[in-house]
Design a protein around this nucleic acid. Sequence first.
DNA 1: ACCATGATGGTACGGTCGTATCACGAAAAC
DNA 2: GTTTTCGTGATACGACCGTACCATCATGGT
Lengths: 208, 208
Amino acid sequence: MPKRVDHEERRTQIAEALVRVAGRRGLHAVGMREVAAEAGVSLRLVQYYFETKEKLLLYGLQQLAGQLGARVAERLRAAGDNPGPRATIEALLRESLPTDEESRTFHLVYTSYAVLSVTDEALAAQPFTDDPDAAEDAVTRLLQEAQDARLTAPDMDARGEAAGLLAMSAGLGTSILVGQRTPDSALAVLRLHLDRLFPEGGAGPSID
Amino acid sequence: MPKRVDHEERRTQIAEALVRVAGRRGLHAVGMREVAAEAGVSLRLVQYYFETKEKLLLYGLQQLAGQLGARVAERLRAAGDNPGPRATIEALLRESLPTDEESRTFHLVYTSYAVLSVTDEALAAQPFTDDPDAAEDAVTRLLQEAQDARLTAPDMDARGEAAGLLAMSAGLGTSILVGQRTPDSALAVLRLHLDRLFPEGGAGPSID
DNA sequence: ACCATGATGGTACGGTCGTATCACGAAAAC
DNA sequence: GTTTTCGTGATACGACCGTACCATCATGGT
């Protein structure tokens, strides 16, 4: 047999090129040829590792979803439980805001996928329900911890608040994306909400 | 001179077809020919009234933004001030949720435009900053009224809370769109937030 | 009655897209 | 050393897209 190439590595390389192009020119405008050029390979190679464009998009989505999951997990682990639930949640939500250029690209492409998945049934809707559900679970857990530690109101609906928090964070992210709001003002809005959720005095050390 | 046709009416008719097609197959997939077929006119006519596709999209966006503004204004007028600020805000935000098929199409296409506007500089970003700003002003005003009537905390940051409320509403709308959340559960989350904003006892009659 | 002109239909053109086909190099297996 | 098979390149094909061009019809002004 001839030289064996790590398929998964190539696929990742190409998928990363896809994400870069999509972030620059919009997911709707990416073509196989442009992805190939961005990845530094020939068009044929893109076809070789992903037989069809649909599969390429799907793989790109999965990779993006994986990155998001990994990023959130890392945040959770890095922050640990030491700074207190409030700071952990704040760090988590801040991560999910398109602040720097990288996360901006990430959010743009992810949102593009989401919009496409509504009409293009080929793009599985799983990542758009499973991942948010996982995030909701995580935030819910953190809120419950805070509740157990008497940091929040005893009658707080942790799951509902988590859902609201994440929805607000997502909405703020979109606002930043379209240029309506600055990352700083979005963060301020988020903090305002968290301040009401965590009555003064019980908050852990603020990270900034 | 030959028969004169109301250009604005025709343009509206074609733009409505555009929105219908975009809601069905995705904004990225709409072509001039399909829009023409949906509107019941020939391709040439679409070209005649909108010289280029970009102008067609722009017109469609403006019309969509106008519809949104009109819908919100109507809500504000219909609800009036009689049910109290809380109920008015709730009605406002509920309107901005993709509940029925019509508003679902509306939100999908509007979101598609928003995503496109990030990379396609041709699509003016104004509607994506002006309209939300107007909505924020309206909600801020309502919150201030409520604050003056001692329905909310005296130290509430009306503008910040309005921004958060709208962001959460937008995020919930997207969740509904991608099938992660049902309209009912989204509404419940919204009410949960409003309940905390408006302490019990001061709320006006609930509308349902 | 007869034009001038707005409205409309039909169709062709250049380009790009995703995909398929053909061909070749190179290295592991025997 | 030959053969088989993976990896890679170049290129062609058919479809569709947005746009442009040309012809025709209908009608209001004179």
